[in-house]
Design a protein around this nucleic acid. Structure first.
Lengths: 228, 228
DNA sequence: GAGTGGTCTAGACCACCTC
DNA sequence: AGGTGGTCTAGACCACTCT
């Protein structure tokens, strides 16, 4: 019994998997499928649209709907606030503000934010602890020109958290990479030299102006996981 | 002028960003918004549903729609085939099959695939090159019991690519981490010892049986990037 | 019990694109 | 020029869950 759009999505995916409709193949039109499944075309549209967003189908007006030749998998990751991430593991979160000062950013940071190297930004270096053990080192540059005054005491309230409640829902981009720990990082986080760190870098923007660039250096063992 | 569901989504997001509707706030019902915007409720539903999927809104029947308190950002990553990824950089792809044999997998691999440690799997070790330089080392275990026969010559056709066209659209999970290069990896990829590698691990399943586990060790400098 | 979102319908018009 | 997907409508019923 085929009921709602989720059943239709499952049935279409099944036909693709058993190679009833192999990669590159043109599948029936929405109207034809609606007749076959005995439902409205809007219901078929919902199912096929979800599969297209997942990269399984390619749809073009007039040309029809094809099974994607090279399935670019779309993996979706959750990027939570650090405190939330630690507490979700059943550990207690704490943090220490290691440095705070104002001045011009390093050139790579300035260029990422699209600001001149002479801009004055606030630099924050914060170590986050999970059950007292170093979890992630956060190095952040903030653009005070676009932040709501007054700024809080970042030794008492993590910048990571303050931004969520004050600059929520801005746009930005995220990048992941692996880097060898610097001597500074190894000392602060209590790691052996040359430890491999998982690096998350995020740039955040409002409509017009850059807000912040943050680099998170995660202690060894950190994993980012997803379900496809 | 407010037209389609994308305009409604933009307007709702604008009100959230200017804190017209701050985090935790209950926003008007679909019906109320449909009246305000002069459109059908289904159109408002489409806009709010997209924002809920992006983690901006939280919706519950009867309780209504709220602006999310802790915005868990959903980052979407594209996971392309290796050849495609290299060619997208304007480089030429080549690969060398370094090892191929059949036998029981290491315990961690067996447990990830949910197979007994006595299972016989095919082990493949492939080095992918971009413009002749080591790009990623692929170590893969294949479950021959669920693969369509005959298997190809993996020295001529990359397993990475063969699976796409023969086992497309299976389910699985993906994990990212950072690891220090082993002596073996450093030698093969021509890296200094202790280089930090970006690791991608993927497990792939059909409905019932595990198909393959693959570990990709990316050369230093590799980045995974996304737009939010 | 009642209010809210989730979904479906039957029809319509339109944008886009291949033919 | 015509076929296909993209979207919208007005209405309806249902599932869920808060009160």
């Amino acid at each position: 019994m085929i009921g709602g759009w989720e059943d239709i999505r499952a049935e279409v995916l099944r036909r693709i998997r058993v190679r009833d409709w192999p990669p590159g193949d043109l599948i029936p039109t929405e109207e034809a499928l609606a007749i076959e499944f005995g439902c409205a075309r809007a219901t078929v549209n919902r199912a096929l649209r979800e599969l297209a967003e997942a990269g399984v189908l390619e749809r073009r007006r007039k040309a029809g709907t094809r099974v994607a030749m090279l399935p670019i998998r779309k993996a979706t990751l959750d990027i939570p606030v650090i405190r939330q991430e630690i507490e979700a593991r059943g550990q207690t979160h704490a943090f220490r503000l290691l440095q705070q000062h104002e001045g011009p950013p390093p050139v790579p940071v300035a260029s990422r934010l699209g600001l001149p190297a002479t801009a004055r930004l606030i630099y924050l270096e914060t170590l986050h602890l999970a059950d007292g053990q170093p979890f992630v080192l956060e190095t952040r540059w903030l653009n005070p020109a676009v932040l709501p005054a007054p700024l809080p005491d970042f030794a008492a309230l993590s910048a990571n958290e303050w931004l969520v409640t004050h600059i929520a829902y801005a746009t930005g981009d995220i990048a992941f990479s692996a880097q060898t720990a610097t001597a500074h990082e190894a000392t602060i986080m209590g790691l052996s030299p040359h430890a491999a760190l998982f690096i998350t870098e995020r740039t955040t923007w409002t409509a017009e102006a850059p807000i912040t660039f943050v680099r998170l250096a995660h202690a060894p063992g950190y994993r980012v996981q997803t379900m496809v």
